[in-house]
């Protein structure tokens, strides 16, 4: 019955369409696609406008949904408050013990460094920024942060959080930047194992949950449970940033679980080597 009604509604709304519009639209579409593949300056500008102007508008429109979701999360958090409180109290006691140990180790480290006359390898924090948008991971795994050229954030800078390596910047506009996450299949991170310093390259798996080795130096595979840190070879990622843990070793490649929880990215730090 209702589908029969569809048929009548269409005929009343038929309007003449200028013949030049369709070819024009097609030309524009093909030009945009070709430019996307060949020209980076113009397309980066178009992408920049998309992030700078389109994203805030969509944020405003979708804000009621975000607010409802946040409210729901808040209610859930309140429900688990008592249980969480007890857990946190236990955690504080445990962490205080670790803190004492860390302070002791830090002092020892300083003394040893002085004795060895060594220099520390540290990173320069360019900016700590909040995540304002994250792609749902269907095509690509990217996040947008609320800092861009205004804080000297340019392309190809490493991005970390408290757990380890998150990704690298791929597009910077005046006030925002896009970050390609390391679990994206187009991402490539040079890493080394902590145990035997064997070098390899990691890319994201298709589902974005794991990291898969795409290259291993001398076909030397790590052992199960090995920790992977950035090797510093690509000049983008500073050395010794925690990346992942090896969870499966196959005949010609291995699978690693990233330390960063990509579903809970709130604040990120854009860094570079000192």
């Amino acid at each position: 019955m209702m589908f029969k009604r569809f048929n009548t509604s269409s005929s009343t709304k038929k309007k003449s369409i200028p013949s030049f519009l369709l070819p024009l639209l097609f030309l524009l579409t093909f030009f945009l696609i070709i430019f996307n593949k060949t020209d980076y300056f113009l397309i980066d500008k178009v992408k920049g406008y998309g992030v700078d102007y389109l994203l805030p508008v969509t944020k405003i429109i979708s804000s009621p949904i975000t607010t409802i979701n946040n409210l729901n999360l808040r209610i859930q958090n309140i429900q688990y408050l008592e249980h969480e409180n007890l857990k946190l109290k236990e955690e504080i006691i445990r962490l205080k013990k670790w803190q004492t140990l860390a302070i002791k180790n830090s002092r020892e480290n300083r003394v040893f460094k002085k004795l060895l006359n060594s220099t520390s390898h540290q990173v320069d924090i360019i900016k700590t920024a909040a995540v304002i948008n994250q792609t749902p991971g269907i095509y690509t795994n990217q996040v947008t942060i609320n800092a861009g050229l205004n804080y000297n954030i340019v392309n190809d800078l490493a991005v970390i959080n408290e757990k380890g390596l998150v990704g690298k910047t791929i597009l910077s506009t005046n006030s925002k930047s896009k970050v390609l996450l390391i679990n994206d299949s187009s991402s490539s991170v040079p890493v080394k194992t902590l145990s035997d310093n064997s070098y390899s390259m990691l890319t994201g798996s298709a589902d974005g949950k794991f990291l898969i080795s795409s290259y291993t130096q001398n076909n030397k595979l790590p052992r199960l449970g090995d920790l992977l840190v950035t090797s510093g070879n690509a000049k983008i990622f500073p050395r010794d940033i925690l990346v992942a843990k090896v969870i499966k070793v196959n005949a010609d490649h291995y699978i690693a679980l990233p330390y960063v929880d990509f579903n809970n990215l709130n604040y990120l730090q854009v860094v570079k080597s000192k």
């Binding site: 992030v51 095509y139 690509t140």
Partner: peptide, 16 residues
């Protein structure tokens, strides 16, 4: 164009 720019940061699949 909007879906391409905001979802995949490349221009093509949705637009085409």
């Amino acid at each position: 164009l909007g879906l391409d720019l905001l979802w995949i940061n490349e221009i093509g699949p949705h637009l085409l």
